[in-house]
Nucleic acid binder design. Structure first.
Length: 500
RNA sequence: GGCCCCAUCGUCUAGCGGCCUAGGAUGUCACCCUUUCAAGGUGAAGACACGGGUUCGAACCCCGUUGGGGCUACCA
C-alpha cells in the first residue's frame, strides 16, 4: 500500500465550530496540512456545523483565528472560497438530502418514523434484558409504498442506513492495516435527522466524495464508525480515499483523552490549557506549538526534535505515524518554546514582545525594548515571562524592593548600606559608564569591601531593579543610564535602617 | 457490559529478526561555567507489561493474559 493515490492529494480538516480550537484538533489539522504540503496538494477547511443545537455564531470566527495564528493556510474553505464550495455544511443541505434520497430509492437506506420515546423505550427494554442497546429496526421492514405515503403525509422521519445483517466489513486503515467488524454488531445509523440536517456519517462521506478528498486523516475516535462509513462509500459506489486514523492525545498522566470538560492537570497540579487560544494568551509561539505537536505521534526521522515546518513538510509522511495514543508532554512544550524563542532574531522577538508588555499595562518604548530583548531572550520559556523578568524597564515609576531584600548572604544592614553608598560614589566618578568600566569598578570595590562579587552585585541588583531575579546587572544599568542607576542606589541606601 | 484500537525509560520517541550489554529528547539529580535567573557544557539514574510459541537467533513475527485508551446519540 502506498500513501499516495493516483489522484491529486487533497486533505481536509473538518472541525465543528463549538468554540475555540481544541489542541488535539490543531494537531489533526497540522498533520493534514503537512501531508498536503508535502505532496503539493490542497488543504481544505470544511466546517461541520450540522448540529443546530450546538450552533455558536462566534465559534467559526474563533476557529479561523486559531488556525491563522498557527499559520495553517487552507487552499479552499471559508473566507478563501474554492471550486467545491460551499465549505460550510449547513449550506450544503440539498446535497445530503439528495443523496439520502438516493440511498432510500436504491434500498440502501430507509425512512424511520419511530418517535424518540419509542427509541428510548426500546433501549430500556434491551438494557433490562442485558442486551446491547440499539434500534430494533422496526421501520426497516416498511414497504416502500407505505414509507413514501407516510412521508408524503408529512409524518416526521429520519433516514437510517440499511446495515447488512450478517457478514463482515473489512476496513483498511493506512496506519493500522486491516480491521474486521462483524456487521451483526453494527447499528442502522441515522443518516438524515428529522430536521433535514445530515448526521456526521452522511455528511462526511458525501462531502469527502464531492470535494474529491484523497486522504482522510482524522482522530481514532472515529474508528468505531469507520465500518459504517466504509459501507456508505460502498453503497454509493464511490472511490474511497485513503484513511488514516490518528492517535489521540491523552492527559499528561495518561488517563483519558484531553478534554475541555475535564481540564487536564500536570504533575504539579497545575491546569493545562486545552484550547489553542489559551496557548496564544500564555505566550507560546506558533512555531513552537506546531513543532511540539508534530513530535507527538510522528517523528522527524533522525534524532532532531527542534525543526521548522518548512523542514517538516519536506519529510512528512504517513509511515512514521505511531499508532499508539500518547500522554500530553507539557514539559517538552515549554522547552521547545524556549528553543524557538532563542531561534528568533532579537528584532523579531521584540516585535512579538511588544503586545505582551502592552497587554500587561506597560507603555513600551521601542528603543528600550530593542536593548532589553537580547537580555531576556535567553531567560524566557514563554513570551509572557518578559513581564516578570523585565517589566520594570517599562514601569512609569520605580517600585523599590523591600529593604530586607537588599542584604545578601552573610551581610547585615550596615554593611549593605555602606556598600550601596560606596558603589554609588564609585560609579558616580566614572566618566566612562560602559558595561566593562562598571564591571571593573565594582569588582575592585567588592575586593576592597571584602565582599564576593555575588554579594555586592546582588545588593546592587535588588537596588537597581527592585527584584532578586532580573536581567544582568551591568547591562541593566547601561540601559537605565547613569543618573537613574545612581538615584536608585541612593534610594536603596536610604531605605536601610541602621542603628549607630 | 459489548465492539474496536493500542502497548520500549516518569513522559515524547528511535528500533521494523542478528548492528540492542536498546539510541535520542524532555524531565530529575550531580558537577562545570557564573553577578541573580536562565542559557550552555559534562555526567548519572531510568524502559522492551507478563506468559507461551515460531526461529540457529525476538523489543521486533504469532497466540493468550494483563494494562491503557476509544466508541457505544436524530453530537461531532
Amino acid at each position: 500500500m502506498t500513501d499516495a493515490t493516483s489522484r491529486p492529494v487533497r486533505t481536509r480538516f473538518a472541525p465543528s465550530p463549538t468554540g475555540s480550537l481544541h489542541i488535539g484538533g490543531l494537531r489533526t489539522a497540522l498533520f493534514n496540512w503537512l501531508f498536503a504540503r508535502h505532496h503539493n496538494g490542497s488543504f481544505i477547511l470544511r466546517i461541520e456545523d450540522t448540529d443546530q443545537e450546538r450552533y455558536d455564531a462566534t465559534a467559526l470566527q474563533t476557529l479561523v483565528e486559531a488556525l491563522r495564528w498557527a499559520g495553517l493556510q487552507w487552499d479552499e474553505g471559508p473566507e478563501v472560497g474554492g471550486q467545491f464550495g460551499p465549505y460550510v455544511q449547513s449550506e450544503r443541505l440539498a446535497h445530503y438530502q439528495q443523496w439520502a434520497r438516493w440511498l432510500v430509492d436504491n434500498d440502501k437506506a430507509y425512512r424511520c418514523f419511530c418517535s424518540s420515546e419509542r427509541l428510548k423505550q426500546v433501549n430500556e427494554e434491551k438494557v433490562a434484558r442485558k442486551e446491547p442497546p440499539g434500534y430494533d429496526r422496526f421501520c426497516r421492514s416498511l414497504s416502500p409504498a407505505e414509507s413514501a405515503q407516510r412521508a408524503a403525509n408529512g409524518e416526521s422521519y429520519v433516514v437510517r442506513f440499511k446495515t447488512p445483517l450478517d457478514g463482515q466489513t473489512v476496513v483498511q486503515d493506512w496506519i493500522r492495516g486491516e480491521s474486521v467488524f462483524e456487521n451483526a454488531n453494527q447499528q442502522d445509523a441515522v443518516l438524515l435527522k428529522s430536521d433535514g440536517f445530515p448526521t456526521y456519517h452522511l455528511a462526511v462521506v458525501v462531502d469527502d466524495h464531492l470535494m474529491q478528498i484523497s486522504h482522510v486523516m482524522r482522530a481514532v475516535e472515529w474508528f468505531p464508525s469507520f465500518p459504517l462509513h466504509w459501507q456508505l462509500w460502498d453503497a454509493f459506489g464511490w472511490e474511497k480515499p485513503v484513511f488514516a486514523h490518528l492517535p489521540v492525545m491523552l492527559n499528561p498522566n495518561g488517563k483519558g483523552k484531553i478534554s475541555k470538560r475535564h481540564p487536564p492537570v500536570d504533575k504539579h497540579g497545575k491546569t493545562i490549557p486545552v484550547m489553542v487560544h489559551d496557548y496564544m494568551r500564555a505566550g507560546y509561539l506558533p512555531e513552537a506549538m506546531l513543532n511540539f505537536l508534530a513530535n507527538i505521534g510522528w517523528n522527524f526521522g533522525d534524532e532532531r526534535e527542534v525543526f521548522t515546518m518548512v523542514e517538516a513538510i519536506e519529510r512528512f509522511d504517513l509511515t512514521r505515524i505511531n499508532p499508539a495514543n500518547s500522554a500530553f508532554p507539557t514539559e517538552k512544550l515549554d522547552w521547545l518554546n524556549g528553543e524557538h524563542i532563542r531561534l528568533l532574531s532579537p528584532e523579531e522577538l521584540a516585535r512579538r514582545l511588544k503586545p505582551v508588555l502592552e497587554a500587561a499595562g506597560f507603555e513600551v518604548n521601542v528603543e528600550v525594548l530593542l536593548k532589553v530583548t537580547p537580555l531576556v531572550q535567553v531567560r524566557m520559556k514563554s513570551l509572557s515571562d518578559v513581564v516578570e523578568i523585565a517589566g520594570f524597564f517599562f514601569r512609569e515609576t520605580f517600585i523599590p524592593a523591600a529593604p530586607e531584600k537588599l542584604p545578601q548572604k552573610k551581610m547585615d544592614a550596615r554593611q549593605t548600606r555602606d556598600a550601596l553608598v560606596a558603589a554609588a560614589a564609585r560609579l558616580g566618578e566614572l566618566t566612562d559608564f560602559s558595561i566593562e568600566a562598571q564591571k571593573l569598578a565594582m569588582e575592585t570595590l567588592a575586593q576592597e569591601l571584602g565582599l564576593s562579587n555575588s554579594q555586592l552585585f546582588g545588593v546592587l541588583r535588588v537596588a537597581i531593579t527592585g527584584q532578586q531575579v532580573s536581567t544582568p546587572l551591568f547591562e541593566t544599568m547601561d540601559i537605565l543610564g547613569k543618573d537613574t542607576s545612581l538615584e536608585r542606589l541612593k534610594l536603596a541606601g536610604e531605605s536601610l535602617l541602621v542603628q549607630s
